[in-house]
């Protein structure tokens, strides 16, 4: 069940639905990162140039399918919109997945799938190589059920902030070398 890229590439995954308003912000951050790489041929992080071992992708699914996409990566950064109601729209945070304030980690994610935490636990129990605890860069959003491919102004303005947050996490993990990193970081 390995789709391993064969090295210690970090996967940066923009998560969300690109036609569901602010939920599309994960894709837009992925796009911004790609644009920078295309333009500059490399990414300059706050701590210096990053190595090219970064893979950027987008995904619109959670649970088992998201877990399956993470197989083979030792490090992963997921960028996603959240609606916690505890901060103004556009607020960017970064946390470890297992630090997300979610009780009952094994509960069903949705009417159709497992939670990512349960899916990761399943994958690990089956011996799949998976990131220890993926980073999650979240953007506080105004999530609705209105179809549209535009972000609200505050969330649009958060794209560069979230992009920088991804670069910082990348640099931090790089500085840790192969330890994988277990500490927490919130901003």
């Amino acid at each position: 069940m390995h789709t391993a890229p064969g090295d210690d590439t970090t996967l940066v995954l923009g998560l969300g639905n690109p036609i569901l308003g602010d939920d599309g912000v994960g894709w837009r951050v992925a796009e911004a990162l790609e644009a920078r790489i295309a333009r500059e041929g490399r990414i300059d992080s706050p701590r210096g140039a990053l190595p090219p071992r970064v893979e950027i992708d987008r995904l619109s699914v959670g649970g088992l399918r998201l877990m399956e996409r993470l197989i083979g990566y030792r490090r992963a950064i997921i960028v996603d919109a959240v609606e916690t109601g505890t901060a103004p729209p556009g607020t960017v945070r970064r946390v470890r997945l297992d630090e997300l304030p979610v009780p009952g980690q094994e509960r069903l994610a949705s009417a159709h799938d497992s939670s990512l935490a349960a899916a990761l636990a399943l994958g690990r129990s089956l011996g799949a190589p998976l990131p220890e605890s993926p980073w999650v860069v979240t953007v506080e959003a105004e999530l609705g059920i209105e179809v549209g491919d535009r972000l609200t102004a505050a969330v649009e303005a958060a794209i560069p902030v979230a992009t920088t947050a991804v670069l910082e996490v990348l640099a931090q993990d790089e500085a840790r070398g192969d330890e994988g990193g277990t500490g927490s970081c919130t901003s």
Binding site: G62, D80, A117
Partner: peptide
């Protein structure tokens, strides 16, 4: 209908 994915993924 509008389901895409869910983080943290609880019901």
């Amino acid at each position: 209908g509008c389901a895409t994915h869910s983080l943290p993924g609880q019901m």
